[in-house]
Simulated scan of single mutants.
Amino acid sequence: MTEKERELLNLLEKEGRMREEKIAKMLDVSEAEVKKTIERLEHDKIILGYSAIVDWSKVDVSETVTATIDVKVTPKRGVGFDEVAERIYRFKEVKALYLMSGTYDLSVVIEGKTMSEIANFVSEKLSTLDSVISTTTHFQLKKYKHDGVVFEDRDDDHRIVVSP
């Protein structure tokens, strides 16, 4: 992969809606080259998709509950953690799944309508898998920053001015 391709990926990761014209100027290449490179990166499954970061707390819909579940598993001979990871990521509730170092093996991020829906997922689907030894569930209480985007409006400083 060339340096220009890495730069293009960095630009798209920060702003997926950036126009090809702007990218071309920033990278000092032609628009046609940008378009061709993006199409190739999408075809090669290097660019997997584009998404918006939404502050759902500001939208008039019922918010979802997000939980991170630490999962300890017994890896299977010959396939390691991949087989159990695949079984877990196929559940519709699972938004992200990571192999981790440390006390737990997998970190699963799920969303549900209620805490009880998440509890049911853990007790009825996740912990019943043969390889799963234990789980620890952490509920997200407030989102401050996600993918480099800060979620708090801090325009005004409401502190009282103190002077000598």
Rank of each mutant, 00 (worst) to 15 (best):
D82S: 15
Y89V: 04
S51A: 14
K14A: 05
V79P: 12
D153C: 01
L9W: 03
A119W: 05
V61E: 12
K143A: 03
V29N: 03
V94G: 13
Y50F: 12
K145D: 03
V149I: 10
M115Y: 12
V73S: 01
T37E: 07
D82V: 12
M18W: 01
R90Y: 07
D70N: 13
I47K: 01
Y50R: 14
I118M: 10
A24G: 06
T103I: 10
I118Y: 07
R77S: 08
R154C: 02
K4D: 00
L48T: 10
E31G: 03
D70L: 15
L97N: 09
R6F: 10
L12S: 02
K142W: 04
K145W: 02
D156A: 09
G112Y: 08
G148C: 06
T135M: 06
V109L: 15
V150P: 00
T2I: 05
Y89F: 11
T37H: 01
E3N: 07
S51H: 13
S163Y: 12
T136K: 15
I23A: 12
L99G: 04
E15T: 09
V94N: 13
D82A: 14
D155A: 08
I110T: 15
E5S: 08
I160R: 13
I23G: 02
I38W: 04
M18T: 05
L9Q: 00
V54N: 01
S163E: 15
